[in-house]
């Protein structure tokens, strides 16, 4: 049955390009159709496939041919499962490409989007031109032209389904909550509820629509999570920048690790 199933998919595809495979495809289809309706296959298609494969292998390696012959059913099932898993992943990739603009929302890698960045995914929100900025600690960008006036506002922008957001969000909340008396903190889920202004802000900082986006005081921002830093590294980077933008208001800002990072800003 497994050989008929996998053969059906392969032969059906090859039949599109060559008529010589159509008879075989029909035979495979008949066999599969009978088996799924709990009737015995009334052709020797399974044996034909086995004989053809074994015969080819016998010309190259008797040992491999013997192994394949003896375990043909098991090997067929492995290939069948791998085929269905591959088909499922391919379909998932096409879906992501259509909806999100990238095949793999986890790695960002996509044959149609080569060089996709890790730690962030594309969100189908995009527009504005990028701004001028320089890299600083923790992968954050320093908008040199920006300054911090008054009580800083810090934002986490992501979505409920984004895995990088899921990694970053609790760290962001954990660190920024220490500065709750000194900064305005907001977590925005861009797939749920947001204001027009928040969308504009998101588009401004992430013109391609990648998420998550962490915006600290309008001065420092980063597109993507801090997974490369690890939890401890990310915690320290966030703390250092929060200290910087709030004026070192709490004790942790004076610890050697944090102050050392702050000095680099």
């Amino acid at each position: 049955m497994s050989a008929c199933l996998i053969a059906l998919v392969i032969l059906a595809f090859m039949s599109v390009f060559s008529a010589k495979y159509r008879r075989w495809a029909r035979e495979a289809f008949n066999c599969v159709a009978r088996r799924v309706t709990l009737r015995p296959c009334n052709t020797t298609f399974n044996q034909k496939v086995k004989a053809k494969v074994t015969s080819r292998l016998m010309r190259r390696s008797m040992r491999f041919a013997r192994f394949t012959y003896r375990h043909f059913e098991g090997i067929s099932w492995v290939f069948t499962i791998v085929m269905f898993v591959s088909l499922a992943y391919t379909a998932y990739g096409f879906y992501n490409l259509a909806v999100l603009g990238t095949c793999d929302p986890i790695t960002g890698d996509c044959i149609f989007n080569p060089g996709g960045n890790p730690n962030r995914v594309l969100c189908p929100f995009h527009d504005l031109e990028p701004h001028e900025s320089v890299p600083t600690i923790g992968g954050f960008m320093d908008i040199e032209s920006a300054s911090i006036d008054g009580r800083p506002k810090v934002y986490f922008i992501g979505t409920t389904w984004c895995p990088h957001c899921a990694w970053e969000r609790p760290l962001f909340i954990n660190v920024t909550s220490m500065f709750s008396d000194h900064a305005d903190i907001k977590v925005i889920e861009i797939d749920q509820d947001y204001t027009e202004g928040e969308m504009e802000m998101f588009n401004h900082y992430s013109p391609e629509g990648s998420i998550p986006v962490v915006i600290l005081g309008g001065k420092y921002f980063r597109i993507g999570s801090g997974e490369d830093l690890g939890e401890d590294g990310e915690r320290q980077a966030l703390t250092a920048i929060m200290c910087k933008i709030t004026g070192d208001p709490i004790d942790i800002c004076h610890s050697p690790d944090v102050s050392g990072l702050t000095a680099k800003l």
Binding site: T44, Q47, K48, K50, A51, K52, T54, S55, M58, R59
Partner: peptide, 13 residues
């Protein structure tokens, strides 16, 4: 070995 398989292998090989 199945008899059909033996016959098919004789033919194929």
């Amino acid at each position: 070995m199945g008899f059909h398989e033996v016959a098919m292998l004789l033919n194929e090989n």
